[in-house]
Nucleic acid binder design. Sequence first.
DNA 1: AAAAAGTTGGTGTT
DNA 2: AACACCAACTTTTT
Length: 549
Amino acid sequence: MEAATAATAAMVWFRKGLRVHDNPALDAARRYGAGAASARLYPVFVLDPRYLRPDPAAASPGSARAGVARVRFLLESLGDLDARLRRLGSRLLLLRARDDVADTICAALKDWNIGKLCFESDTEPYALARDKKVTDFAMASGIEVFTPVSHTLFDPAEIIKKNGGRPPLTYRSFVSIAGEPPEPVMEEYSGFPGVGDTGEYELLPVPTVDELGYGDISQEEIPPCRGGETEALRRMKESLQNKEWVAKFEKPKGDPSAFLKPATTALSPYLKFGCLSSRYFYHCIQVVYKSVKNHTKPPVSLTGQLLWRDFFYTVSYGIPNFDRMKGNKICKQIPWSESEELFVAWRDGQTGYPWIDAIMIQLRKWGWMHHLARHSVACFLTRGDMFIHWEKGRDVFERLLIDSDWAINNGNWLWLSCSSFFYQYHRIYSPITFGKKYDPNGNYIRHFIPVLKDMPKEYIYEPWTAPLSIQKKVKCIVGKDYPKPVVDHETASKDCRKRMGEAYALSRLGANPTKGKTSNPLRRKTSHGDKATSEASSAKLLKWSNQDE
DNA sequence: AAAAAGTTGGTGTT
DNA sequence: AACACCAACTTTTT
């Protein structure tokens, strides 16, 4: 240990924000004690056993919280961060928490005589609890703490304050309140202060995903995106080089079946881990916009996508129980049904609808799918066909997506299940025709479901309609080599619409108990009384009562 | 109170 | 490819 002289050491604690560029926490830490020969910088990342410990009971290789694809991406990002720090005369100090990450940080702060702790603010509930523990310890120990907002464009707390204490619940209102984001830190570094003595601490080399013990993962396809800041910046520049593409970008017009060359930037994993700064990305898009005559605007434009990200971060920060139906004030209370059989078929890509199954297999293998592909399967699981709770689907996405981001994932599941933000539950994605209009030949399906690779295109989206002679010829018997549909979309989607209508009607009845007429006991009695006609009667009644008022 | 808006539906016609 | 139409949601704006 170093002698306990006046502290001139700063720690930058990495969690998200795995980058050197536009990193205010790193920038502040490297300035601490600037000029002094004794200045030291400790760049730390702590491996969290609760995030990484293998879970043999999980539906696919990985830990309980993360699939192999995301773990691999994280490790690659850490390796790249270490390499970039080394080029600047520093390095990443990789520690392993015995149990609790916060405890590990607190111990190191004390043992290394740290004078200033810098880390990026994180608004997720898990992170808030963890960071409070560390901040409380540091304050009590007289350690200066700096926690800048740099993961998002804006500070969610500030937006909520500007909006009168409540988060804006529509994108439009969010954008009008937000204004222009702060400029990124554009500092070019030539070197960082050296790392100080780390005493008895075991500094780990960045492990490989094989070393973490997830069993045999040799069969796992390696997703076509490597983690790390270097790769993030390279990909961003590549995307932005095509100025016309940037200027004309409209999210809803992308092709969800494009997998060799995705229709989007596919930068979401880099934003999730902070390998790429959203402010720097925003700034670079603006530079392109200034060089062209016309460009698309939010919500559909590229900058609009970054604003969506901030929108969900802000709402998730301001709404208690954002990740649950119960106790969540903005979430419709819907009596989702329980069917382990249907859920497992969805999760494992065994629904018998090739479009749905191919997307779920891409999720499992790559940890990434196009946004509209996510819509298709989320709608299918919840309000479209299976009527299963969005929290079940959310958990699967959260574990398997490389870019899974707590705020955005939950926000989109609320959206797609028509539980919040979006309410047009009659608009249901067809598991047959939606994909077909982008990819009539079914190339996407053929790639991810090899057993269907020779199915004629007339039947590829509905293989159960293929004549048995054809099924035999292409060696794919439906019911044996590929499953029969687990639900009939025609009848299932009709039933889902009906149940959504009932749930909405009930939610409206219960929504305004202060308005005397809507809580009329007669109406309640009617809507509960006759099961078969409950939807029709309550819906009619509501129209009637609306006219009444 | 009424109209318009809302990132991305499906089907059928031209 | 563009448009009307379907059947209809909630929230915001006028």
